[in-house]
Simulated assay, not measured.
Amino acid sequence: MSMDFVGSPNFSDRSLPRHSANGRRSRAGSRASSLDHRLSIIAEDANAPPPIPAQTHNRPFSRRFLGEPPRYINGHRPPQYTLWDVTGPKGEKFQDLRDNAYVARRGGWKRICLIALIMIICIVALIVGLVVGLHKKSSSNSVPASASSTSSPSTGPFPAGSWTFTTFLDSESAACTSQNSSWECEPSVTYASSPTNSEATFNWIINSTGPSFTISSTNNPFAIDFDNATLSLIDGGSDNERYTFTTTVQKAVFPSFNVKCYYNTTQFTGDLYTKRAKSYPPSSGAAATSSAAVAAASNGPVGMAAGGHFANWNFAVDATQSVGGGQDVPACYNYNANNGQIGSLITTGYSVMPAADFCSCAYKNYDP
C-alpha cells in the first residue's frame, strides 16, 4: 500500500524538463547577444595617436630649454611629499637625523649652524677681498705711475720740499793727511780745470717741523750722508737771506782697490740762499727771485716738481766738507773689494798731521 503526503514532491514524476541541446544553444546565443550590445568592433587603426603639433615660440622657459616634464602612467601624478618625508639610505627620516646621537654628541644643530655661518662669512670675505683688489688694480692701471725720488717728497711752507742742488767743485785740499791720495773730492775736477766736468748734484729734502726746518740727504755718489740737520735763518729779510746748517758726517775714500779710509769727524756745512740768484749751470736761464716763483715753476707744491721729481733750487747755494789733521785722520784699513769685508788697520805710511791743517771740498753754484 502506498502512502501519499499532501504537498510533498513526487520523486517518481519524470515529466520535469531536461537540459537538452536546444536549451544550451539558446543560452549561448543569449550571452553572445548581450556581449554584442556591450562590445563593438574596433578597427585596426581607429585609435592611432593624433599628430604632434608644432612647437610654438612662446613656450615656457623651463620647457623650451629643459625639455618636456615627465609623463605619468594613467594620468596619475607622484604623491605629494615634504622635506620631513625624505628618507636616508637606511630608511631614516629627517626627524631621525635631527635626533641622531652622533649629531647631538658633536654639538647638535647649533654647532652645525655655527660652522655653516663661519663658512658663509669666509666666502663673503673672500668675494669682497677679490672685488676690492680688482678695483685697486684697475685704479692703479688707470693712473700712470710717476717717477719719484728715493725719499718721499715733503710739502709745507718754503723752503720745505724735495730739492735738487746743482753745483760745481770750486776747490779742494788734502793738507790733513800725509798721503794725498787718501783724500778725494768728487768729481775730482775743479771748475777752473773744466766747468763742465766739475758739476756735482745733490738731492736734499727739507722738512717743516713747526717754526723751524730740518734737512736730510738722499743717496749720492759723494758719500755725504746726513739726517735731520737743523736749518737756521741768517740775515732774514735782506738780499743775503739764507738758511744754513752744520753737521758731522763720516766720509769714506778708496785710495786704492784694496784700501778704505775713513774720516769720521768731517764737518759738512751748507748755505741755502733764498734771494740771491745762482749762475751755474749757465744754461739754466734767469734765476727765480722769490719762493712764489719757485712754486710756480715746479707746477705743484713748493719744492716738488710735476710728477713727483725733485725741483730745482733756483737760488745760490754753497756747501763745504772739511776735517783737520790728528790721530787716526785718516783711519785706513785693508779692504776686500770682492766681499766688502774690512780687514786690519794700516799703521805704516801715514803720519799724524797738525789739527790746523785741513782737508776740504768746496761746492757752489754761483761765480767764484
Rank of each mutant, 00 (worst) to 15 (best):
S351R: 04
F11S: 12
G107H: 02
Q55W: 15
M353W: 01
D328N: 10
G133D: 06
K110L: 03
S173P: 04
W204M: 06
T246N: 05
Y333K: 07
S283I: 03
S208R: 11
P51E: 02
S344T: 09
T201M: 04
K136E: 15
G7Y: 11
T266E: 02
L345K: 02
E44L: 13
C361M: 04
F315L: 10
A311M: 04
Y350T: 12
L16A: 11
Y191T: 14
V302A: 05
S139Y: 03
G326V: 10
H57Q: 04
N74V: 00
D85F: 09
Y262A: 00
Q179S: 05
H19K: 14
S232F: 07
F310D: 07
N220Y: 08
N219L: 10
F310L: 02
A174W: 12
D235Y: 04
N338Y: 08
S154K: 12
A286W: 08
A316Y: 03
P51A: 03
S142K: 05
V86F: 12
K136R: 15
L345Y: 00
H57M: 07
V6Y: 00
R106L: 15
F358A: 14
S351G: 00
Y81P: 01
D271W: 12
T348P: 13
G285Q: 11
A21W: 02
S15N: 10
A319Q: 11
L272P: 09
L114E: 10
F202M: 11
A319E: 11
Y280H: 07
K110P: 07
A305N: 12
A293D: 09
L126T: 13
